[in-house]
């Protein structure tokens, strides 16, 4: 799925940057270094915002676009940070046929957050996931590890109210 730009303000610390520079230095001269650098950068920051990609671009003398191209090609890389509350709706086969797409749409409307992005205050992130293995409870939604099964659109508002 096409990746969404983040609207969350970058809150990187000098410690995180020092760690990132260490990672980049570690891979100096290594062929095919961009994948491990991006993976470790994401471990440090939780996602790969433009500020982080720019540091990597400058230090590795790689065009920013090339890095962005990689970050948007692989689904493992995130352009948005996890929200304080990370909301996920399963779009695996069982959940999907039980109407999880409608639930997802309702949550998106309720939170004002597009699927695949994070609210600009950093409070909520919304993701559509593949099968999470709880097909018996389909359709399933999770919020920070709390599992909500047999979801209907009507329940969305009430559940989200607990996480305000």
């Amino acid at each position: 799925m096409k990746k969404k730009m983040t609207t969350v303000e970058f809150r990187g610390t000098p410690e995180q940057e020092a760690k990132l520079l260490e990672v980049i230095a570690k891979y100096d001269g290594v062929k095919g270094k961009m994948m491990p650098i991006l993976q470790e950068a994401q471990d440090i920051y939780g996602y790969l915002p433009i500020e982080v990609q720019k540091i990597i671009a400058e230090k590795t003398e790689t065009p920013l676009e090339e890095i962005y191209g990689i970050a948007t090609f692989y689904s493992q890389f995130k352009l948005n940070p996890n929200g304080e509350y990370s909301v996920a709706v399963c779009l695996g086969t069982a959940c999907y046929v039980k109407g999880s797409a409608g639930v997802l749409e309702e949550i998106s409307k309720e939170l004002g957050v597009e699927v695949g992005s994070t609210s600009s205050d950093g409070k909520y992130s919304l993701e559509a996931t593949r099968c999470i293995g709880a097909c018996g409870l389909a359709p399933v939604m999770t919020i920070n590890g709390d599992v909500y099964g047999r979801m209907t659109k009507d329940q969305v508002k009430g559940i989200l109210a607990k996480y305000r």
Binding site: K2, M5, P63, E65, E66, Y74
Partner: peptide, 26 residues
Amino acid sequence: CKTMQGIGVIGANDRGFDTHIGCAFE
């Protein structure tokens, strides 16, 4: 842009059916 001129402000973004040529961060 990238190989001949050594600039690289354009490239392929996203994947599959969403793949498109564009600039960093669209």
